[in-house]
Design a protein around this nucleic acid. Sequence first.
DNA 1: CGCTGAATTGACGGACATCAAGATGTGTGG
DNA 2: CCACACATCTTGATGTCCGTCAATTCAGCG
Lengths: 223, 223
Amino acid sequence: MLTAAANPSNYIRPSEPVRITAFPKDPLGVMGATMRFGRNAEIFGEDEEAEYLYQVISGAVRTYRMLDDGRRQVVAFYLPGDVFGMEAANVHRCSAEAIAESQVLVLNRASVMGRAEREMDLSRQLWMLIIRELQRVQQHSLVLIKSAEERVAGFLLEMAGRYPGNGAIELQMSRRDIADYLGLTIETVSRTFTLLVQSGAISLETSRRIQFRNRAALRRLDA
Amino acid sequence: MLTAAANPSNYIRPSEPVRITAFPKDPLGVMGATMRFGRNAEIFGEDEEAEYLYQVISGAVRTYRMLDDGRRQVVAFYLPGDVFGMEAANVHRCSAEAIAESQVLVLNRASVMGRAEREMDLSRQLWMLIIRELQRVQQHSLVLIKSAEERVAGFLLEMAGRYPGNGAIELQMSRRDIADYLGLTIETVSRTFTLLVQSGAISLETSRRIQFRNRAALRRLDA
DNA sequence: CGCTGAATTGACGGACATCAAGATGTGTGG
DNA sequence: CCACACATCTTGATGTCCGTCAATTCAGCG
């Protein structure tokens, strides 16, 4: 199974509808179908109709926008428990792709919104979710006035805050993803990582496994 | 009257509660009090409790965040008709200031939210407002991968799209505000304006009055 | 093992920041 | 109405951080 994992095209395999109950943050607790997406598989594309809401069960997802000449801006990363696909009125303004082999719970958008009109609790949860999304993007907009070092330090702290990992984290995303998220190049990201290693703030077991050595130093850099 | 206009401190003068009815975009149509804010007067501050929602009636408002060392990121500009102050869960994550002499309709947040729980229409309007807000910030995050010229061109088109002005617009904000919105310096903004003038895309009647000469050229630059 | 993509490292250049000086505009008081 | 002060904006000279181009190393995998 999962033979299409390495294929960047849109491989989607729906499975049985399930009722999600005990799940990290379980924000919606609604009926839905889990789907499996291979690495780099497209979950939805820019300008597609927004029919569904999504919740990451395992793996990781990126949303991004492209300019005509190939420049890419990664808008957000979503990790297990996170809900995405809400940024749309009718049509998605971003594309979404699985970063790694991922399971995603897919919910019919209209029916969730419909239920929210009668269930106050669900309504409030959706409201909190979108508020948090907005806050995250606003927070991210601060990278504009930050140096490369500040951006990378902030990124690591952001990821550490969202990962369970204690003392160390395993990044799901490539240097390219990070660069496109932070508005840098992969070379600058890489150089900045080695700077942080040399200054003793972190160490790298592998290129994607970050060991935190001095969080205070990172926070000082985060500005 | 309005003698405190030039005073940067928080000058606030509440007036009679009014029922806003015929108003551009009139998104909420709820009871509220109009307040008047002088240039640079603070409307709310970072970390203050979010008690109110705000709608610009006249003038203009900026929201922004500061770093410790004085760097400032302008998060958004709000023009007549726009609603702001929704980005908050309980506490504001930005500060808001009047850019120019402004009238602002102030609504009790809890009561608006409370009514939204029973009035579907209001609820849907609030949802659309916050979605649009999210989309605007996401759109803005593209500046990260844009050149100075692209940022300024995009900014002018954004403002033109929101202003009624036909063929020309009167910017409410200073070069500093624009610079802090786009992640540039005032010098670079200024230089870029002159570039756009020289290339025939715009002309400047005054430094803040932009005459559009060639929108297609601007759109090409916007990337 | 060799192939392939990802990550790192180095040398160099360019776009924008910084520093500094003028120009323009605006409000105030005589 | 003019003159002065002060803020805003523009323009120029120089510096620097990060992007670009290129080579090397490293990790995964048939």
